[in-house]
Design a binder for these strands. Sequence first.
DNA 1: CGCCGTCTGTACGGCGCCGTACGCCCGGGG
DNA 2: CCCCGGGCGTACGGCGCCGTACAGACGGCG
Lengths: 230, 230
Amino acid sequence: MATSENHLISLLSLRDRARLPGMSDSVELKLGAVLSEPGQETRYVYFPLDAFISLVTGIEGKPVLEVGMVGREGMLGVHVLLGVPAAPVHALVQGAGVALRIGAAPFRRELAHSKSLRDVGHRYLYVLMAQLATSAGCTRFHNVGPRLARWLLMSSDRARSDTFRITQEFLAYMLGVRRVGVTTAASQLQRRGLIHYHRGEITVRNRSGLEASACSCYVADGEVYRQQLG
Amino acid sequence: MATSENHLISLLSLRDRARLPGMSDSVELKLGAVLSEPGQETRYVYFPLDAFISLVTGIEGKPVLEVGMVGREGMLGVHVLLGVPAAPVHALVQGAGVALRIGAAPFRRELAHSKSLRDVGHRYLYVLMAQLATSAGCTRFHNVGPRLARWLLMSSDRARSDTFRITQEFLAYMLGVRRVGVTTAASQLQRRGLIHYHRGEITVRNRSGLEASACSCYVADGEVYRQQLG
DNA sequence: CGCCGTCTGTACGGCGCCGTACGCCCGGGG
DNA sequence: CCCCGGGCGTACGGCGCCGTACAGACGGCG
């Protein structure tokens, strides 16, 4: 899989991009793997190619609510750009797949030389901040149905597929609601023909219908991204 | 008021700090003033001396929920560090007072020369990210009472005074709840002798009691800050 | 001193989600 | 083939907050 499958990398200058293969390797990220915990020292940064990763905030050490999602449009470990060794949130693999992995130390060294990497990284960091802020408002003011629709859209964007694996149990955990709440919302969406799911496999059947059901935060996030990195 | 009243500035190297007076001026921030709106170009960054500022996320352009607070322990406009011209959130003055103001362009120029400014700024940016993530979880899982207590503690820290001006109307807006919800929670705190309030002026009477009533997010935020900038 | 706007308190039905419990259904492995 | 466990559906009382309405309390100003 070409490294240019990651959008941030594709934005680097040719010269800077050419240096990446020498310091990185491709790794297979397994569903459910934990890539970071708050406070823990970050050993690698990741550029997903077809995997995607959830950023999950915690309360008293326990992960409780998804606040961001990282796929091939982004990277995991932006805090390394800031010279901070520890991750601020939990990170766990939502969609199995391949990612480019770079050691934190070589990555920092590369940052000193590569202006385009700094620029792109900084802009993505800004996008993430905006995403965190949006999440807070969304979680507070939007109901489960629209939030679920938004989540499915974000996932299918990042999985680059209309179908992916996720149980209601896990969805509930990401959205910070009961599993039963997800059942209700999801069966609603299914009854309207927007999605289909069966034993942990979910497929988007009507994307534009789903977009109409999602809260405004889906579009808002996309606009910030496009503005900075489109 | 000495510029070292701002904690970030006090962390700069002597040489870097010495250059600030030449590029900055002191301004009086008035209660309720709007210092930034999402998408709008940032003209100045601010280092509060005894003022403090709320960061407020929006939904469809309207500010709806506080996601961060900036006082003399921080700065407003971290996104300028990232080379992004537009603010990601609304910013409005919560506590009137003095702040050091620096134009965005001179600030960026100074960044190129001042390693300590970059370092301190980056670490504060990290703290802010953590604060955004914490806010999301707190808003979702904690009740109004503990959240109110946390807010009061954060404000009194930043105001550096046990008494400050704030109406229940405004508090409700910051916490994303009804004004009536604040009335209930606040009178509870008052009945327990932890605070006293009267027509828009609130005073903390029993700080440690208030700390015991606040949710864990107050302590969590403080720890991240101390770890990075203490 | 009396008016008026601002700030605070109380009330009430309703909604969305919670916590919990229980049962069914499906698919894979023994 | 049957069992078993993971995944999903339904039910029910309860809670915390919502939206709205209205009234009292206080203070500044004419």
